[in-house]
Amino acid sequence: MKHQRWLPHPHLSILLLIIWLLLVNSVAPGQIVLGVVIAILVPIYTNDFWTDPPARLRLLPLLRYAGVVLGDIVVANVQVAILILGPAKRLRPAFIHYPLELESEFAITLLASTISLTPGTVSADVDADGRGLLIHALDVDDDEALLRHIRERYERPLKEIFEC
């Protein structure tokens, strides 16, 4: 049992409250009270399952990051759709190794998910030592440019959010 605290995961609690209100599709006072109860109880009882929460989390950059990713998902989807509709012979698939700068497990998970959802890439494996990702790209022209793109656009902001 980890050290018990009243609100072991404040961010999770807020998220749970929002999800509850969305689920019941109402903001009636009764539902808010019930949501708050759930938001307090669930993190306490599931505490043992969670890895240590990231030490810090900056909300504003996180929101900006979410916005960027959401926009990129749409763009990337159109790109992938065009690639799929085009002739398969023209595609240049590749496995690329991406050395990680991030260290927090949670941030790495977020980065891997982002990579899978955005440009024509899917994260396929994590190195045993957690220092790199194996990425499969659907159509890649310049590996260095792809690595730089991921580094600049996704990993740096994540670093800013979760680490110093």
Binding site: P93, S113, S116, D125
Partner: peptide, 30 residues
């Protein structure tokens, strides 16, 4: 969930060493 299941499927495929098209470049440096 979509990235998670994609990741696990890719991992399983690598584990089973599924065929890949000839031209797939492998730029895993390490």
């Amino acid at each position: 969930t979509a990235p998670v299941s994609a990741h696990m499927l890719a991992k399983a495929a690598l584990h089973l060493q599924l065929e890949r098209v000839e031209k797939t470049r492998d730029v895993a440096r390490k």
